[in-house]
Design a protein around this nucleic acid. Sequence first.
DNA 1: CGCTTGACTGGTA
DNA 2: TTACCAGCCAAGC
Length: 145
Amino acid sequence: MATTKKNSGAAKKAAPSAKKTAPPARERLKAVKPSGGKDDSFFDLVHEVARQIPRGRVTSYGAIAACLGTRLSARMVGWAMMAVPYAKKPVPAHRVVNRNGLLTGKHHYDPPGRMQQLLEKEGAVVKDDKVVDFKKLFWDPAQEL
DNA sequence: CGCTTGACTGGTA
DNA sequence: TTACCAGCCAAGC
């Protein structure tokens, strides 16, 4: 989104043309690499935390980032989420929403509405693409972990 | 080797 | 109240 000021006329390419961009070499590399369990990749870290999210519970990127010690790198968490589908283990990315409780990543799901469906199926109430009582359903990784 | 983009957040204007 | 700026890490071209 070119949040910064350097967005001027950078609207030439924008976003990878292919929705299913090639899986991050990082993820694939460790896949074949006998890491033994954990990786030094930031992605896996995020994936692990996200997997710890209880059913019917949601969390925010900042919470995960803070849990990892990189509160200022919430962006990376989002990037890691992009690699979720490429991750070896299933990651409930639908339980990860932004600090507003808005399903920002729903667009990345096969069907754009699947994220909401999953949340509703878990018992969460989603309205207008945002989690109702998000604060109540909020699950703090640092608190549980 | 360097710049841009990106599923974000928090603070300031 | 909403809008914009600045900071962080990583991958792609």
